[in-house]
């Protein structure tokens, strides 16, 4: 099977800044792929390289097996949903959606029919005559989506697609995007700095750090088996134990991560820890405990957490496999 997008030793340098550094990557056809990382990690640059807004300094990029380093964006069958949506302010919603067809010199009646169809797909049927400025953020986002999908691209790129929406709308759109991707069968590549967004939608996630991919894998794998300290700390608020701390509990290794929800706080047993703070988070409770080797954060449910008081002595334990020992600190 040909992969949808392939990066071979791709670098993008801006002066002395290596935005993307010797990167290799394969995105499969029909996959929902997330590029996750902090700002400046190179994820957006990668997206722009696929779209063709930038030319790589070095390396080879192919889309469905065809090398594209020398192909301008308007000849790539790849479309983008922009972070600021980039809707044309001088055109109506319908004209925005039909823009790609107008460029292809499709006749006007077909254009109108197609754009109405695309708007219905994003549940905005009947909004065609409005101006983008008359729409809400969520609606603009859907228009941008309809506009990018009207050409039935081979790959759809989404740059922080939900970044500007409020929490509730964001969760709603996450589900919708996932459904849409599955029904269309188009490869989706999206960029985000929000790990929960990446995990809830993507089939595979690439975690970016300093122009390189720190880890690539399924959301479950990355969450439970982080490669290194960066991934462990960026993906959720994990407890990270260093070599000395591991020594104290009799484990050998450079470093290890321990998920807060894997930590059990028992009333009985050996009282090996003291509760030093307790925060109500809504559905769960975050408890910080002091042990002989340092502090740990634990997430517990109300059944257990409600009765805990700061200053209590408790027994802290975890399953052996919950402690994930990492191969190295810089891997």
């Amino acid at each position: 099977m040909i992969s949808a997008v392939t990066f071979e030793n791709v670098s993008q340098h801006f002066g002395s800044v290596k935005a993307v550094d010797q990167l290799n990557l394969q995105i499969d056809e029909g996959e929902f792929f997330a590029m996750l990382g902090p700002s400046g990690s190179g994820k957006t640059t990668c997206l722009r390289l696929i779209a063709g807004f930038q030319k790589p300094t070095a390396g080879k990029i192919s889309i469905f097996g065809e090398a594209v380093q020398d192909v301008p964006p308007y000849r790539r069958n790849v479309n983008t949903v922009f972070q600021d949506y980039a809707l044309f302010p001088h055109l109506t919603v319908a004209e925005n959606v039909a823009y790609a067809l107008k460029i292809k010199k499709v006749n006007k009646t077909t254009r109108q029919k197609e754009s109405e169809k695309a708007l219905e797909m994003v549940r905005l049927g009947g909004y065609g005559k409005r101006r983008p400025s008359e729409l809400s953020g969520g609606q603009r986002q859907r228009v941008a989506l309809a506009r990018a999908l009207i050409n039935k691209p081979k790959v759809l790129l989404l740059d922080e697609p939900l970044g500007a929406l409020d929490l509730k709308l964001r969760e709603e759109m996450q589900g919708e995007l996932k459904t849409l991707q599955q029904s269309l069968g188009i490869t989706f590549v999206f960029v985000t700095h929000d790990q929960s967004e990446a995990f809830s939608m993507a089939d595979r996630v690439a975690v970016f750090n300093e122009g390189k991919i720190a880890q690539l894998g399924t959301p479950e794998h990355i969450y439970h088996r982080p490669n290194d300290l960066f991934v462990a700390s960026f993906v959720g608020s994990s407890n990270v134990l260093d070599r000395d701390q591991l020594n104290v509990i009799g484990v050998t290794g450079e470093a290890a991560s321990l998920r807060p929800e894997a930590i059990q706080l028992n009333e009985g047993g050996d009282k090996n820890a003291t509760v030093i703070s307790k925060n109500f988070l809504g559905s769960s409770i975050k408890v910080v405990v002091e042990m002989d080797f340092g502090q740990l954060s634990a997430l517990v449910d109300h059944a257990r957490g409600d009765s805990i008081v700061v200053g209590d002595n408790v027994n802290v334990a975890w399953d052996k496999e919950a402690l994930h020992v990492m191969s190295g600190t810089d891997a």
């Binding site: 779209a51 063709g52 807004f53 301008p72 964006p73 308007y74 000849r75 790849v78 479309n79 983008t80 922009f82 972070q83 600021d84 980039a86 809707l87 044309f88 302010p89 001088h90 823009y99 790609a100 107008k102 460029i103 292809k104 506009r147 990018a148 050409n151």
Partner: peptide, 28 residues
């Protein structure tokens, strides 16, 4: 004042430089 991504959006949707100027830059 106008967003730089408008030009990119136009090229992304298949318009070459001249079409982008004609249909997006000039009206704006």
């Amino acid at each position: 004042r106008s967003s730089a991504s408008l030009i990119e959006a136009s090229m992304d949707l298949g318009a070459n430089g001249f079409q982008t100027f004609r249909y997006v830059v000039l009206p704006n």
